[in-house]
């Protein structure tokens, strides 16, 4: 066994920094999920459109995002936008933009599956009571679809939360970046990374448990 003397004092001294970093990561994930959900919903309708002029580009976007490494997308946006004349995004905004666009592709797939699995009868019942097409979507199809897709949405939120670690690559001070900095300053390698890992792990499972409660509350009666 290799001798390694633990010294947790370093962690306690930097506890506030860890917490602030964790909160930032969570915030980034939630905001990106919200934006991604809205865009993803439009993409899902686009993919299901009978017109290939609408469905094809949506398909291409989704495949492009899903087959490109996230880190590459992050750099692409962060370093690339100024190249095309967009200078006014700071690194956090740039990261949110990337993660939202990334989330949108995955949410599109979730919603597409959700819309496809919607029992036909719902739409028809809505038609039967005389709702107009957009009313049918607004009051019947969407609420049901959101409930069906809730488990997949929570999985996506957890993934996105873990993906916020990549923001470290453009020096966004989230958990991974912070851990790396503290590691560099203190050389308490194992303590730092154990703490970061544990914080990610605990938060991911906390999200999972919390959202399971939400799922139970809104469970679709099948």
């Amino acid at each position: 066994m290799i001798a390694y003397n633990f010294n947790w004092a370093v962690i306690w001294r930097n506890w506030d920094a860890f917490m602030a970093a964790l909160a930032l990561g969570l915030g980034l994930a939630v905001v990106s999920l919200l934006i991604g959900t809205i865009i993803g919903l439009f993409l899902a309708y686009a993919r299901l459109s009978p017109s290939p002029w609408i469905s094809r580009p949506a398909w291409a976007y989704v495949e492009f995002i899903r087959n490109t490494p996230l880190l590459l997308l992050i750099f692409f946006v962060y370093f690339g936008l100024p190249e095309i004349g967009i200078y006014n995004l700071d690194k956090i905004q740039s990261f949110i933009l990337t993660l939202s666009g990334y989330a949108a592709a995955y949410m599109c797939e979730v919603f597409r599956a959700g819309l496809a699995s919607m029992p036909r009868a719902y739409g028809e019942a809505a038609k039967a009571i005389g709702l107009r097409p957009w009313q049918r979507q607004r009051y019947v199809v969407l609420p049901v679809m959101f409930r069906i897709t809730l488990p997949a949405v929570s999985n996506n939120l957890i993934s996105l939360f873990k993906d916020t670690s990549l923001a470290a690559a453009i020096a966004v001070p989230e958990l991974t970046f912070t851990a790396r900095q503290i590691n560099a300053n203190t050389y308490r390698v194992i303590e730092c990374w154990l703490t970061a890992s544990a914080l990610y792990l605990v938060t991911a499972y906390a999200i999972a448990i919390a959202l399971r409660q939400v799922e139970k509350r809104y469970a679709v009666v099948r």
């Binding site: 990549l166 851990a179 970061a196």
Partner: peptide
């Protein structure tokens, strides 16, 4: 439950 990037950094610095 742990991001891959954290695994990578942990392994890299930890082994060192």
């Amino acid at each position: 439950g742990i991001p891959v990037l954290v695994l990578i950094l942990f392994t890299y610095y930890g082994l060192a």
